[in-house]
Amino acid sequence: MANIEAAREPCAMANSLEFDLSKDSLRDLNLFLHRDAHRSGVTEVVVNHPDGAHSIACGMNSPTNIQIHGHVGYYVAGMNKHASVTVHGNAGPGAAENMMSGRVHIRGFASTAAGASAHGGLLVIDGDASLRCGISLKGGDIVVGGSVGSFSAFMAQAGRIVICGDAEDALGDSLYEAVIYVRGEVRSLGADARFEPMTDADRKVVAQLLALAGMSFDPAEFKRVASAKSLYHWHADADQEY
């Protein structure tokens, strides 16, 4: 049972606080995380029985360690800044959407648009990610232990996506400067995405991101996908056939 009052006056032992969403309201949890978590001295917040609730730990702005035990709904850790959020379960659509910094770790699978538009931070998904993973990525890093669905990294502008499994259709369609590293099969590349040779620098990046994610694949097994940049400028002669 969460005891918010006690948390506001922390004693030496009280640096971990539990919320049980079968009894405590989501609003109380997020209010505590937004307003009180940082100044309360609580360094770890444990969330039990999330039962698919939306927007858990959304809009964090402090370096709190949040451990969620169970499956979550839409937008977990959306807009995350500084916090480290671990979901010991699956995540609904839009996990870590628009993350600015910090770390979000989904131990199960993630639904559509995981890490969409993330500007910074690291999103780790141990299982599969559904369609549109990393869509419009703007500088964050994503490591997926499993496979990703179609249209992943669509229009991704900056950042890196490491995919340890396979990718379905249209990977990296209309990519800008983001780079994708994929270990398994790619069913199809999107428009303007192409395979490029792996350099030592690429292998170093993959090794570093895998280490941060706690995954132990060989960086030599990954292929690099990046933008051919043929969509960067308008070509009247192309007649819209790319």
Partner: peptide, 28 residues
Amino acid sequence: DAFACKPAVVAETDAYVAIASEFRSLAH
């Protein structure tokens, strides 16, 4: 559909197959 725009989650045990748009309808 091909774009999987609308969500769905399936939960299967020996006793049942339950489907909902979101897990929160299956949690109980």
